[in-house]
């Protein structure tokens, strides 16, 4: 049993079958990559895991509990954090505040009326946020406004915001898409570092094969909403079905 179990998930948008009978199992402490041509349904699948979309049929079990019908903040509280295709951060807040917020969310839950406490007096939480920023080499930028960061640093910050919650599962949707080369390398290094230093389960959608093969323990290939194959990276590389799916798309 994996920590995440997706069984028989279907999702239609009008006449379009975006997901057709998807089964997926992600084992604890592994990195599971989901690849596939454009429009294969990768993002749709991910959105079904975090409560943004509700599948038409099928079940999604996380850590022994169904996530279906739960709101995004409830699913996060179960232990799933998500990194977006374009970094979603609190642009008007400082870098440190960006990391403080997930710390409070983790400690206090979805809502708490802490109007008469003072952020600066929460020593433990501030220390933890600063430690996290140090881990991703951003402590020197703690006082900066988050919207003034470079694209790569925004991604780094978003990652820090997710990691500081110590999620049981981290989902990443094309973390390097649309990035300059330097920022891409920067992000890949960070991902490798996370994998090496933390016991974390990750599901990652990625187009960059270099990233995928250097990170993933297992790979699922999705095409037209259905998983074609699932295997270890070495087996996926030369798999005829995979070649077909990508080549069939290319012309």
């Amino acid at each position: 049993m994996g920590i995440l179990e997706v069984k028989g998930v279907n999702k239609r948008f009008g006449g379009l079958q975006a997901l057709g009978d998807v089964n997926l199992s992600v084992a604890e402490n592994t990195v599971h990559a989901i690849i596939g041509p454009n429009g294969a349904g990768k993002s749709t699948l991910l959105n079904c895991l975090v409560g943004k979309l509700i599948p038409d049929t099928g079940s999604v079990m996380f850590d022994g509990q169904s996530v279906l019908g739960r709101k995004p903040h409830e699913i996060n509280q179960l232990g799933i954090s998500r990194v977006f295709q374009t970094p979603e951060i609190f642009g008007d807040l400082t870098v440190l505040e960006n990391v403080l917020i997930p710390c409070f969310a983790k400690r206090d839950g979805a809502f708490r009326m802490h109007a008469f406490e003072t952020v600066a007096h929460e020593r433990d939480i501030v220390a933890r946020a600063e430690q996290m920023l140090d881990d991703v080499n951003m402590l020197d930028k703690a006082g900066m406004q988050a919207s003034s960061l470079s694209r790569g640093d925004k991604r780094r910050l978003e990652m820090a915001m997710c990691l500081v919650q110590e999620p049981k599962l981290l989902l990443l949707d094309e973390p390097t898409a649309g990035m300059a080369r330097a920022d891409t390398n920067n992000t890949i290094d960070l991902l490798k570092d996370i994998k090496a230093t933390r016991n974390i389960t990750m599901a990652i959608i990625e187009h960059d094969m270099h990233v995928v093969f250097s990170l993933a323990d297992r790979i699922t290939v999705l095409a037209q909403g259905t998983p074609l194959v699932e295997d270890v990276p070495e087996k996926i590389k030369g798999h005829p079905k995979v070649q077909e799916a990508y080549l069939g798309q290319a012309h």
């Binding site: 975090v50 709101k71 995004p72 903040h73 996060n76 509280q77 954090s81 998500r82 977006f84 979603e88 951060i89 609190f90 642009g91 008007d92 807040l93 917020i101 997930p102 969310a105 983790k106 839950g109 979805a110 809502f111 915001m161 919650q165």
Partner: peptide
């Protein structure tokens, strides 16, 4: 600033 991030941060 960002309600999407807010919700996906468990708030």
């Amino acid at each position: 600033t960002n309600q999407t991030r807010m919700n996906y941060t468990g708030l």
